[in-house]
């Protein structure tokens, strides 16, 4: 195998991620190639040195700055948080649609036409309601008449039965 190919395999070699065949090929190359062998030693040193870098503690000044950030954020968002709640989204959508319709009405060039048409629609709606109300009144009277009729016929039946019993 050529040195370039071996170089690519050195990293997985130190992490033990090569197949048995690849491992054997790398080993045999390293025995005959001082250049790749020295590169492997350096690679191991890089690997070890990077792993040895310690984790630093955050200094108190930065911690204070970070805490101050959350306080600022809280103050800033106090007024807005309520409106940004997901549960309010349908309400806000409806309100927007309503406002769009309202602005359509107010800024339409033929506002008079819209007014007339609205008036006509309102009038038609009103007369429909009146008709329905009148119909409901008739229906109520019919029901009352039916009820009286039914009660009368029951009364009649009752008197017939009683007079039949006396005979």
């Amino acid at each position: 195998m050529k040195c370039e190919k071996i170089e690519e395999l050195l990293s997985p070699y130190i992490e033990n991620e090569l197949s048995a065949e690849e491992k054997a090929a790398v080993k045999s190359h390293l025995q005959t190639c001082p250049n790749c062998s020295s590169l492997l030693s350096r690679l191991e040193e890089v690997h070890q040195s990077l792993a040895d870098f310690p984790e630093l503690d955050v200094n108190q000044d930065l911690m204070k700055r970070l805490y101050a950030l959350t306080r600022k954020k809280r103050k800033f968002s106090l007024g807005l948080d309520f409106f940004l709640r997901p549960s309010l989204q349908p309400v806000l959508a409806l309100a927007t649609a309503f406002l769009v319709l309202l602005s359509f009405y107010f800024f339409h060039p033929n506002k008079e036409l819209i007014n007339k048409s609205l008036e006509r629609q309102l009038h038609l709606g009103y007369s429909k309601i009146e008709k329905l109300y009148a119909k409901a009144g008739h229906f109520k009277e019919d029901l009352n008449a039916l009820k009286e009729n039914f009660l009368d016929s029951l009364q009649q039946q009752k008197t017939n039965l009683l007079s039949g019993g006396e005979d």
Binding site: E7, E8, L10, S11, P12, S38, L39, R42, L43, E45, V46, H47
Partner: peptide, 12 residues
């Protein structure tokens, strides 16, 4: 892999 190799070459 590339990063480690680069650093190893610099070190070498």
């Amino acid at each position: 892999n590339r990063g480690r190799l680069h650093l190893a070459k610099i070190l070498k």
